[in-house]
Structure formats: C-alpha cells, structure tokens
Nucleic acid binder design. Structure first.
Lengths: 162, 162
DNA sequence: CTAGTTTATGTTATAATATAACATTGCATT
DNA sequence: AATGCAATGTTATATTATAACATAAACTAG
C-alpha cells in the first residue's frame, strides 16, 4: 500500500508537501512536453495549501483575491482539467472538490479517506481493494475505465476529539 | 457477492424489477412506520424505469409531463432524500444521479458498475471489496461512516458492440 | 370529532457547480 | 515578420441543489 495518511492526518511541515508537489509537477510537465503556465501553477499551489479538497469556486475566490484580478470560472476549470489530465490532482466526486495527488505520474487508482469534520483527505493506493474491484468487474463482464473510491468518516484526530 | 449485474446488463422483463422494487418499498415503509406518499412513490417508480441512473432534473421534467402539473425542485429533492434515507435509492456521485437499490433494507455498501455508453448500472455488494476498504481505513486509524465505490467503464453489451 | 401537533407539500428565490461559444493574446517555428 | 497552435479572456447560460417561509394534509389525544 502507498498512502499519505500518516502525513495528511498529523501535524507536519506542510511547506514540504507543497514544494514537493510543485517540483514533481514541473518535472512531469517537462517530461510530457506540456506547459505549467502561471495560472496552472497557481491553481496547483492553491489546491496544495492543505490536505483538504478545495471547491472550484473557493479556488476562484482565493485566486482572485491573491492575484488582485478577477479569475473567471472557465479559466480555473481549464487549469483544473489540465491538472486532472496529468494526474496531478484528483476530483472528489462526493464533495465536488479537488485535491492534490501526492504520488502523481505512477498509474494508480485510489481510495480516498475523507474526514467529515476537518475535511482532511488521505489517498491510499491499495492492491487488495483494486484487485477485489477488478475481480468484481470481471465476474460481471464489465471493462473498467476509471473508478472512484471515496470513504467518508472520521480521521484519527477528529475521532480522538469527539 | 450479491449483485443484479446479470439482470441489469441483459434483456429482461423490467416490469418485474419495477414491481418488485415497489413492493419492497411498500413493505419497508410499513415496517419503518413511514409514509410512501404518492409523490414519493412516483419518484421511486420513475427512477426504476430503467437501470440507468436518473438526474434530478430529468426526473422533474418527466414527472411534470406525466402528472400534468409542474413539479418543482424542492418537492422532488425531498422525495429523493426520503428514499435515500430508507436506502431505497442510491446517489451516484460521479453522475449526480439516482438509481434504485435492488436489495434495500439489508445493510450493505456497494460497488456500482456504471456503463459509460449506455448508462446501465449494476450494484454489487462484495465482501472482498468491503473488507479491503475496512482494512485500509483501520490501518490509517480512520473510522468509516459511508462510502462510494463507483466504477466507470463498459458493460458486457456495449463492450461487445464496440 | 375537533383542537393541537407533526409531517408533507407548495412556492419563491437563490446558491453552488460547470460548460458553451467565440474573441483575443501570446508563444514557437519558420 | 508571417503563420499556426495553445492558452487565456469574456459573455452568457446550463445544471444541480438548497434556504426560507407558507399552506395543507394526516395523525393523536382528549
């Protein structure tokens, strides 16, 4: 299993998460020969401001505030589509929100553990879950193209607090 | 494994699905001492018109047409909330749409196999998937409250056709 | 059976999320 | 500089969902 659950649910030096993500993104864009433009980089950075999924309109508001000029939905959604396409971020369907991928570039399909209280979300690439899903699909004759596994509940911290 | 994938992805007498669902709903409502009002029943029936998840606004339009009077969003969303609460329908987050539950009343958390082409969606209650997710959550110290496992791809029929 | 209570529905308005369509700009190579 | 393509700007609107308050229907106790 690959996961960032230790980091996501503990106190940590988040600047390192942000910087690592940004550096990985730059490398990936070079490798893929695509452009990490200022807008795209700003969107990625803002999404990485925490381990909580961020809604598109919160993103728009924060970017507008930070840059001093009004960002409009299409601009931001285009950047999001770009980042999604490269696997640098994921969309959390149950929240209509976006979160940075801690291990981009490697093909993986994931379990997201979304805390209902604090919002912090860990990503886990788990072989047992994936193989069980693949087996299920196979038995139904179903060909998998993509999947969303989103678990909502309480993270270790919020669980302790309540 | 419990699943309706054989039925959902084959030709079948769908009236039987619809009638069975309706009868189960009536029984459940009696047992739970809640009211399956005309609106709620109409919404459930319409959702069961096929094995394809139905969006709230399609539902509104169809109900309006069928009943001859304009149904408004709150009316329909309230019926949907009621049915969701009883587990008679599920919400497919990746589609913002609703589908009937083929085995309501029994506690289960499911894998949905959503065909990208025809929309037909099967529900599978799979012990291996669930236990793998539970184990993953446990390792992260995460307490599960609910989960959404939505797999998108090609159903057996659409796979054959393409 | 009726007054009071709860549950359900009606109604108006608006919030929140996302995309279509077309214009303009900027960069990359000739 | 001329061209072509990728990215962004701009306007408008589609789609999904909920808040807030008014009315009506159904149940419950006396």
């Amino acid at each position: 299993m690959i996961t960032n659950s230790r980091v996501a649910y503990q106190q940590h030096d988040h600047l390192r998460c942000q910087n690592a993500a940004l550096q990985q993104a730059r490398n990936l864009c070079v490798r893929e020969k695509v452009r990490l433009t200022p807008i795209r980089e700003a969107v990625l950075c803002m999404i990485w401001q925490s381990h909580r999924p961020l809604g598109a309109y919160k993103l728009i508001d924060q970017l507008s505030e930070e840059s001093g000029k009004r960002m409009l939905p299409p601009t931001v959604y285009r950047a999001l589509d770009f980042l999604l396409g490269l696997g640098l971020i994921h969309r959390i369907a149950t929240l209509n929100a976006f979160i940075g991928c801690p291990f981009p570039g490697s093909p993986h399909s994931d379990v997201f553990l979304v805390c209902r209280l604090c919002g912090s979300t860990a990503e886990c690439s788990v072989e047992t879950v994936n193989s069980a899903i693949v087996a299920t699909a196979n038995r139904a004759g179903f060909e998998i193209e993509s999947q969303a596994v989103e678990v909502t509940g309480l993270c270790p911290l919020c669980r302790g607090a309540s």
